[in-house]
Amino acid sequence: MSIESNKQELTELIYQLADDDFIHAHRGSEWLGLAPHIEEDVAFSSINQDTMGHATMYYRILSELGEGKADDLSHLRKKEQFRNAIILEEKNGTGEYLDSPNYDWAFTVIRHLFYDVAKKIRLESLKQSSYEPLADAARKMLTEQYYHLLHWKIWFKQLMTSTEEARDRMETAIKRVWKDFGGVLTLGPHAEKMVSAGLIEDEAALRERFIDQIQELFNEVNYSIDNEPLMIRGDGRNGEHTEDLEHALKTLSEVYVSDPQATGW
């Protein structure tokens, strides 16, 4: 692969990877101090830190490709420039993280589980990427992915097989996440070129692996779903986003933009 002739699909792909991890970790970090159990709060935060750390690695690769400073890329871009899937930007629940957060733990467990399953599949594929810095980053990130999956699978299985109330909440959350999870599984408008440049495997292959693995998890808890994951609110890979992202970006960049003269924080 030549960086020069494949620059656009290369950077598009890395923006997708970076923004997915960044926004997902941001939503996770809003839970800090509010999880169902103190011990879980600590464990959950490690996962969010890992994920934020992965986003940082991707932004640095973009920076080396001449896209600008990693902090600028994460804190100064406009909503339309973000490439994350819409399901990842959705708020954790109603309310704000400081004011009456009515956060939904079932939604969080499902979104994180599905995301970490999809992410592991994506990283396995990226290990063979024609762009070596990406392949190298993927190998490093995979070492942390094992724990994330272990953690979310235990939460999933236990809540799905406990009380009726928990089962109801979990099933509602699955249906909710499913309707937009297609956004994580797509590679967006530049998919074909990404694949022909050998950056990542074909979207259909990755998607099939995802569905197989989720199906297996569903089977263990006697659950099934008829249709495939959809993307009803639009394609984040194409810059389509919701108010929730607008709001998140405003929050996470509040300090960074507050003093344009500042050279350090």
Binding site: H37, E39, V42, S45, Y147, I154
Partner: peptide, 19 residues
């Protein structure tokens, strides 16, 4: 630590004491 069962206990132990 406090946990509802041993599966959960082990997954919580890792990040609570070996960060």
């Amino acid at each position: 630590l406090l946990a509802p069962n041993e599966e959960m206990a082990i997954v919580l132990a890792k990040e609570n004491f070996f960060r």
